[in-house]
Design a protein around this nucleic acid. Structure first.
Lengths: 171, 171
DNA sequence: CACGAACCTTTGACATTTCAAATATCTGCT
DNA sequence: AGCAGATATTTGAAATGTCAAAGGTTCGTG
């Protein structure tokens, strides 16, 4: 292949960006992403080690835990930010494990409602307590005021992102 | 798809429940997580729509772009925070598409080094430019000072989490 | 120089992920 | 009634993700 020197010039600029001189927004994003990944992986490891559960399962059960009457799969999909097809599989496996049960309500046979079983409630309660402890542990070195401030600041990030999605979304 | 009500529902609100009684650390975590997820999904959509690429591919190519001499797969694994086995498959597919090439160096036949091809460099340069623009766009509503401040604050979060991992890990 | 320990990557079994297409059901309008 | 269109879920293909075990390869030390 021919050496593309003309391209190389433009690329250098971008490379520089990737290194140290990038736009603040990009730097912020990369740091948010790596931090979130780091914490997520730690939580996943511990969920697996101590409860034999996965993070998506935990998330899904969290939703059902606060809706004792259960949730339609579509609702679950929105709340967990997971696609419909994915929810199907997740609920299937949780049902097979005995933590979730599926019901089709009288009025509308298109709908499937998932709710926690007794075993599911018990398991999730234990996981939730541990989960909260892990987070306090992992964030132990942060100034408490900074935690609250960050929560607020990240809210503006979220709002801004929400305002500039390509698809239609609002709030 | 013009739902009036359910669209506005927010992951955090659901998770935390009406009684915002959860610990600040948990609240912060949930907000970080949902925000990151929101932005990631948008980036993924756009990468797919405009370049036919996936986010993990973009991440992997970003690392290789910065190291013109290529990286060993283990190094790639660390930098992308992806497991070894996963890197194997990612590189395989990128190689099949002609964007990456694998070489086993002279000295050590255990090692595989991956590096971008010409086509890979060209593609990544285009994606990186777009990517940076998307982020500036999505973060357009945030006060510029806040962006820098957040970058710094999140650094302390990352450091704290890093300090309290169960396994041995570092930065 | 031989052998066990350490290192690097791949493989295999599963779970999760997305998107798009297919199913099934309900609703509104004629 | 009946049918088009909206809704809800499932299915299927492909990619990504983890972990654990298996393959080679190299290195240090007896």
């Amino acid at each position: 292949m021919v050496e593309a020197e003309a391209v190389g010039v433009d690329l250098e600029i971008i490379v520089q960006g990737a290194h140290g001189r990038s736009k603040p927004e990009l730097r912020l994003w990369l740091r948010m992403l790596s931090t979130t990944k780091l914490i997520s992986q730690e939580i996943r490891r511990r969920l697996r080690a101590e409860f034999g559960a996965t993070l998506p399962q935990f998330d899904l059960m969290a939703q059902l835990y606060r809706e004792k009457d259960g949730l339609r799969l579509g609702e679950l999909s929105k709340r967990t930010m997971v696609t419909n097809g994915n929810v199907t599989g997740l609920v299937e496996r949780l049902e097979a494990d005995g933590y979730v049960q599926r019901v089709t309500p009288q009025g509308d046979r298109r709908v499937t409602v998932a709710k926690l079983t007794e075993a599911g409630v018990t398991l999730f309660a234990a996981m939730a307590a541990a989960h909260e402890g892990w987070l306090q542990d992992m964030m132990a070195d942060i100034d408490p005021d900074a935690v609250a401030a960050l929560w607020s600041e990240i809210g503006t990030v979220k709002a801004s992102a929400n305002n500039h999605l390509s698809g239609a979304a609002f709030e």
